[in-house]
Write a protein that binds this DNA or RNA. Structure first.
Lengths: 322, 322
DNA sequence: TATAATAAAGGAAACGTTTGCAACAAGTGA
DNA sequence: TCACTTGTTGCAAACGTTTCCTTTATTATA
């Protein structure tokens, strides 16, 4: 491997001069600099990321921690992040390997964005204590080194329940998410509060874990107890898709017997028949904002910020008038 | 930051002893080792990735280069990779930032898997020349440091055309992919060869770029020229989805007037109505195999290998008898 | 008991950068 | 002419590890 040492020798200057030249410092004269650059190119010089980050104590890399890649969900999210980051000279890497949680403490990355409920809050806190900068998208944390940008789950869940009520539904069923998920907990809480406002509504809860399979199982349960049209709020779209799967094998019709609304507006939702009603939000904006807050934190421009992403209702033929 | 130096001082031993202890070397006695480990834990020691990789000239990280995250496509692929890699002590990071192509030459990663047609072959070759190990999944390359694992596009495309022919279609239309894509080129080539075997078939080509939008546009074109039932082979599922979108707004029915088959069997394809006929292959296996070949290359167990992933036909109601 | 072999620990160089400081030359003003 | 800037370059330490080689202490062998 050719290093600045080789360039220095070749150019007959010291390694510090080479370093300055390579970094475009004005301390070295134009001619020397040009000569050094030429030699560097000729020798096919490539800097060592390890050596540089060892010395500079930074990598210009940001990590995003994701639980799983499933949903097409993440495409826009990552896009939003990358744009913001690359404008500021940072690279984004997606971390989801078993040991990737080490990247932050070992200073392989300069900061991290967390969207992974399995990442322990305790651990995040200890990173922050050590001075590392974080943005959390999936929990609430209050610390000078942590910013947060959360979905407005409460508003979303309330919109969903109100929508079902508005369409005349008197029997409402919610398919819950996993306890580990902050979003799931917030949504459920808002649902419980919302249904209380409708004294005539019969309200039922069914377990779910945000995956398709549990949506199918919830569908089965609903089918078994079926007596009259029911409005179902699946706490995310993925379970709603699972429920579609189930009912496509039965004699019950979505939008007639079973009315379904989801949450997230993932890509598939617009392609299934009938179009799934759901709660929408800008994934792109979510990602961009998270990155922005992280950069603010890293560049010490701001103290931690707490932002919220707005949501809106998307109507669909999966919910019709009762 | 606490370093092995601090531990050494605290324990009253040399830094080399600490290093050996931390790495579980048998050179240091059990008691000393235990004492050092205890102190390390107490001081909250965390190694520096930069320092280690500077010295060891490896990072135990593999990078996967992806064009875009769109499809739910990538979930299983990455899963397959991660499993294989983590079994062998490697981490996977997804690279798709603007400057992330520098990760390999700067030795931020130990090897790379390429699934990004915009990555120039010339550049890949220069990396390989420098001794870096690669696996390509989206082009053909022959070099001692490059393994490849490609889809059997030809078999897939042939299956698709035969399927349409078998269902009695005499007018067949193919929606092409972008020239930059190796898969697109291979599929098209096989299509052209396959249709020649059916002298009675009228064959038409329409431009496409693998994105939904172009599928919609292709649909429009087909609609305009519509005279009789037509069989359409979209060179990937995403365009097929786009075409569904288009025809859902028309009076032509998929599976009756327009018969569609795709390629990739992405997740959405099983949820749209009618079920999209398509060409399937195991994304998980594709990813796992790519990782395996890369590890073989890195660990010098093998010389470069050229593997192929089998494909199969998935029937769907989007193609019916004419 | 003297010597060789073995075990445990330490010294120091090396990996490839960055950067504060020193050195030196040439030009400036008094 | 002298001291003083200013501009250009070099020296050397530092970042935090790993690892080869040496030293020292211990035990086994003759």
């Amino acid at each position: 491997m050719v290093s600045i040492k080789d360039i220095a020798k070749q150019a007959g200057v010291s390694i510090s001069t080479v370093s300055y030249a390579l970094n475009g410092s004005p301390k070295v004269t134009k001619e020397t600099s040009a000569r050094i650059l030429a030699i560097a190119k000729e020798l096919n010089y490539i800097p060592s990321a390890a050596a540089r980050s060892l010395k500079k104590r930074e990598t210009k890399i940001i990590g995003i921690y994701l639980t799983n890649y499933s949903g097409a969900f993440y495409g826009q999210l990552l896009q939003g992040m990358m744009e913001t980051l690359s404008e500021n000279g940072y690279e984004l890497i997606v971390c989801s390997g078993k040991e990737s949680h080490r990247f932050l403490p070992e200073r392989m990355i300069d900061g991290a964005i967390i969207l992974d409920a399995t990442y322990e809050t305790k651990e995040l806190l200890s990173h922050a204590e050590r001075g590392h900068k974080l943005v959390v998208m999936d929990r609430r944390m209050d610390h000078p080194n942590i910013s947060q940008v959360l979905l407005d789950n409460k508003a979303g869940a309330t919109l969903a329940i109100d929508y079902l009520a508005e369409k005349g539904h008197r029997k409402i069923c919610v398919v819950k998410g996993p306890d580990i998920s902050f979003d799931a907990r917030q949504r459920l809480e808002a649902v419980q509060k919302a249904v209380q406002r409708y004294s005539h509504i019969e309200y039922i809860e069914i377990d779910g874990d945000f995956h398709k399979q549990s949506g199918e199982e919830a569908g089965k349960k609903i089918h078994q107890d079926f007596t009259e049209p029911v409005g179902v709020f699946c706490l995310n779209d993925e379970m709603a898709i699972g429920m579609y799967n189930y009912f496509s094998r039965t004699n019950l019709r979505i939008g007639e017997d079973v009315h379904i609304i989801g949450f997230d507006n993932i890509e598939v939702s617009q392609y299934i028949q009938p179009r799934l009603a759901t709660i929408n939000y800008s994934k792109h904006k979510w990602g961009a904002l998270a990155s922005e807050l992280l950069l603010n934190l890293i560049q010490k421009k701001h103290s931690p910020e707490h932002e919220r992403i707005n949501v809106s209702l998307i109507e669909g033929d999966s919910v019709r008038n009762r």
